[in-house]
Design a protein around this nucleic acid. Structure first.
Lengths: 222, 222
DNA sequence: TGTACATCAGTGAACGCGCGTTCACTGATGTAC
DNA sequence: TGTACATCAGTGAACGCGCGTTCACTGATGTAC
């Protein structure tokens, strides 16, 4: 279910350790346990940057100093979490795009998938939405990198979409950036609004995105 | 120059204190001194929410406990700063809008004024851009309130502008919201980029805003 | 004008707390033979 | 199979620090008469 449960690292690989040294033991606590603990603590009122190392280890049930066996510091953990979050989101939105074909449908189902992920239990998207403006440089760079990937995928899809409609797009890269930033900004505020208003927000966001695309096509056409 | 120097509070008013009690002394340190100290400490790597009460008083040159004579806690100071920041920004953008008349001109000069304010020494805009996604509920509500004012003023101007061009606008409130959120989101990331790229960013932002307006008019027209 | 008094802005010292980080350690695991 | 040994994941205790907040205070300012 959650990307955290996929254990993508090859922890279980035999790893013969060909050079004479004894193989290291399999660790009892893993990076994933710590990432999961941090995610558990993140919420509408707690950002990654306000979590203390001790809080995370407490949540994970280990001694504070054991943290250092997995990460150099909280910054490193945060960056790992941001990467994870970005990868997960791109996958989900990518799937949503595959499902729809018309422009209207693509926008709507992508926005819907985004909001769904926003409300998901794993809180992965929260990380991406909150840490972009605060935290260390490493934080912000990590978030920006993920946004960049996102923009790039969106840009390609926008071109594909326009071609299917026999339309042209003015400055696809700019359109993609505008949409990405807008959706993330509105999404960030949506975290704090009650889920009852999600439908309304999806509608608003879809219209906003459509305005941008329509505007870009209108400019390209004239 | 800076709104901080305007001393809008009537500190110098005689205040006869008609009821028999002695008049309170004029305080040696004022709320403004503390606000100014906090602003001084805010920067690309420090948000209001990471400032400690002791840091601010240290910067202001007073004892830590003297803080409580002016504010209940750092939250109260932050909210005061956010209000100040919002008022200041709206004033500046309002002036920029007055100066231009055509759609193209209005968008450009507003965006330029925004970027100028972003680089201003007083750092007031930094506060508004950073604290929207983090900090206490009081923080976020204060920022949201300022964004709301901003949207409202923009909405009215958009309608005025469309009328001048004999055009109609689809959902002006939505257009205004999209533009506001987008500009603030891009502005937030711009704080961390070197000022050399400001011209490029102004160009990008202007184009994005124009896409939204064009899109909205195109949808209204069909 | 001078004197006694009340107010209260600002202070210095102290508190208990949670923090990040360090240190020397323990003991389970796996290797070598 | 059994034994001696090396590794190293995880620990408990301790450190110094900056924090927010409290307390009783001081002394300048302004009032009352």
């Amino acid at each position: 279910m959650s990307p955290l449960n996929q254990t993508p690292d090859h922890e279980d690989a035999p790893d013969p350790h060909g050079h004479g040294h004894p193989a290291p033991r399999k660790p009892a606590i893993s990076r994933h346990d710590l990432l999961a603990a941090a995610l558990k603590l993140v919420g509408p009122h707690r950002s990654l940057s306000t979590l203390s190392l001790r809080e995370v280890t407490r949540e994970a049930g280990i001694a504070p100093n054991s943290f250092y066996r997995q990460f150099r510091d909280m910054d490193e953990l945060a960056v790992a979490l941001i990467d994870l979050s970005g990868r997960s989101l791109r996958e989900i939105i990518g799937e949503a795009r595959q499902r729809a074909t018309s422009e209207r449908g693509v926008v709507r189902s992508s926005v819907e998938a985004f909001m769904e992920q926003l409300r998901a239990d794993d809180k992965l998207l929260h990380v991406l939405l909150r840490e972009g403006t605060v935290g260390s440089d490493a934080f912000k760079q990590a978030v920006d990198r993920e946004l960049g990937y996102f923009e790039e995928e969106l840009r390609i899809d926008l071109i594909r979409l326009a071609a299917a409609d026999n339309a042209r797009l003015h400055e696809p890269a700019l359109v993609s950036k505008a949409i990405t930033r807008l959706v993330f900004a509105v999404g960030a505020t949506a975290m704090d609004t009650p889920p009852e208003r999600d439908a309304e927000l999806v509608e608003q966001l879809s219209q906003m995105v459509r305005m941008i695309i329509t505007g870009s096509r209108a400019i390209a056409a004239k």
